[in-house]
């Protein structure tokens, strides 16, 4: 099992222009091996940018990303992908619609290996995929040869989640992966996520817009605002947390910052 360390990460988009956005302003965060951390924060807080810098989709301006103690800051998205599983908000993002369910899983099963002229699908692999799909409880094990484009958004997201975890990644990154689904599908995906993360002890960083979900799931909760981590709550304190309590904590910390800013400006 491998942990994740984010050290002093900064990211500014369009620096020095009128469109300058300081998306990350010094993020320090460590996930112990097997730890499940949820991230909440207002729109534009930098949550996705943080996940994207861990995944290698964007390069931080400053700071380091370590995966299991190995500095991956300079690795490309494709190089890192061998060790990172990801599910994004858009259920269409994680699967290839004109390939079958089995073919999509075959691509995911080869994560981290170079792709050669071996058969992508064998009878043994089909059996393994059917077993894994049966755990979703959606009947997809009977639809191995159906094109993924025929599936519903919830089914596609469940498949994306299975594909992201199939090879037991060193870290699982989830970016509001239930936000675009109807409430029933969202509850199902949240439930599957929790089950698999615990079952396989996956080190997980999950962004969610759903405060209830953020409190109920995970070992620790991180609140982000304007490119910074405002606070983290873990252990017993997190267990006793309510949505109102979380909102109040947010207002309190922001209020302190505000007073601080005013004090700085007054000098």
């Amino acid at each position: 099992m491998t942990g994740l360390t984010i050290e002093g990460v900064h990211k500014t988009f369009f620096p020095g222009t009128v469109n300058e956005v300081r998306a990350l302003r010094g993020i320090d965060l460590t996930l112990e091996p097997g730890e499940f951390v949820t991230v909440v924060g207002s729109n534009g807080a930098g949550k996705s940018t943080l996940l994207n810098s861990v995944a290698g989709v964007i390069a931080p301006d400053r700071g380091r990303i370590l995966l299991g103690g190995v500095d991956v800051t300079r690795q490309s998205e494709v190089q890192r992908a061998a060790r990172i599983g990801r599910v994004l908000q858009n259920p269409l993002a994680g699967t290839a619609p004109s390939l079958t369910v089995a073919e999509n899983l075959a691509l995911a099963a080869a994560r981290g290996r170079s792709r050669g002229l071996r058969w992508a699908l064998t009878a043994a692999k089909r059996r393994q995929f059917a077993e894994e799909l049966a755990q979703l409880g959606l009947g997809l094990e009977n639809r191995l040869n159906d094109k993924v484009g025929l599936l519903s958004g919830g089914q596609r997201q469940a498949l994306s989640l299975l594909m992201a975890t199939l090879q037991r990644p060193d870290i699982l990154l989830l970016d509001e992966h239930t936000a675009a689904l109807d409430p029933r599908a969202a509850a199902l995906i949240a439930d599957l996520t929790n089950r698999w993360v615990r079952q396989h002890r996956l080190t997980t960083l999950m962004i969610t817009h759903n405060l209830e979900q953020a409190i109920r799931l995970g070992d620790r909760l991180v609140m982000m605002h304007e490119g910074r981590i405002l606070f983290t709550v873990g252990g017993a304190e997190k267990q006793g947390l309510t949505i109102d309590g979380l909102r109040q904590a947010f207002e309190r910390v922001r209020g302190e910052e505000f007073t601080y800013d005013r004090a700085v400006l007054a000098n």
Partner: peptide, 26 residues
């Protein structure tokens, strides 16, 4: 060819190249 791992990765690229990169294929 299109049934091999390499061939399948080629087909997937035309379908969803973002997914292909997420799965570690350039």
């Amino acid at each position: 060819f299109f049934r091999t791992e390499l061939g399948l990765s080629l087909r997937a690229t035309g379908d969803n190249d973002g997914m292909v990169r997420m799965l570690g294929v350039s």
